[in-house]
């Protein structure tokens, strides 16, 4: 039992630039991920949409993708990059193209959207701390972690919509950060029972 209660050491704790205070957003959301971080039967899997970073979202248009994940996975974070060295406003190169992008992720199984309405890409993107946006000097990123991990049930499909409101094509990528079960749900139940924890189930 002592082994299970040790402090979790993972990539979240390594930062040269952030003071790890219990009052920060990151500390709060990591507390919600405590069970997931301590579980052994999950591994990290990142899904990128669109997979081809060269595929633009056409002006005033949208792309829709369906991402297939392992049923029982937890979607715990979203991060976004847009665009790759492009300027959407010829008069003002400081206009961040991520502001022209709206995204929505929907659990296709329950038809439950992740967000109550379409959210702007800039909510999930990095932001420039100095220099112009067009020059892509982005030294900070928003915390990609969601307030709570979201369980994706069978059949493990996520609908991703990316809308481009700019008058030019924009190349962007949305990354879904997922914790994937190493074994299917039924098999995991068997393993848990063999490990003597059937009472918990």
């Amino acid at each position: 039992m002592m082994e299970q209660e040790r402090t979790v050491l993972d990539g979240w704790l390594y930062s040269n630039s952030m003071v790890y205070l219990p009052t920060t957003y990151r500390a709060s959301v990591l507390a919600q991920m405590e069970v997931l971080r301590r579980a052994r039967g999950y591994r990290a899997r990142w899904y990128v949409t669109p997979e081809d970073s060269d595929e633009p979202v056409v002006a005033f248009s949208q792309v829709e993708y369906q991402v297939r994940v392992q049923p029982g996975s937890y979607l715990w974070g979203i991060t976004f990059a847009a665009p790759f060295g492009e300027t959407v406003d010829a008069d003002d190169e400081d206009v961040d193209p991520a502001k022209f992008i709206h995204v929505q992720v929907t659990d296709a199984c329950t038809e439950t959207p992740l967000l109550s309405d379409y959210a702007r890409g800039s909510h999930f993107a990095g932001f420039a701390s100095f220099g112009s946006v067009a020059s892509q000097v982005k030294t900070s990123r928003r915390a990609p972690v969601m307030i709570m991990p979201r369980l994706i049930g069978d059949p493990g499909l996520l609908d991703v919509e990316i809308y481009n409101g700019a008058s030019v094509d924009v190349r962007c990528q949305l990354v879904l950060l997922v914790a994937e079960p190493c074994v299917p749900y039924g098999e995991m139940r068997d393993l848990i029972e063999k490990a003597g924890m059937a009472g918990i189930l």
Partner: peptide, 20 residues
Amino acid sequence: PDQNPNVYDACLAVDCGIWN
């Protein structure tokens, strides 16, 4: 990841069962 689930895996399995 290994094949020796711990109590946290069991907790997540319960979560998954409720969701199903």
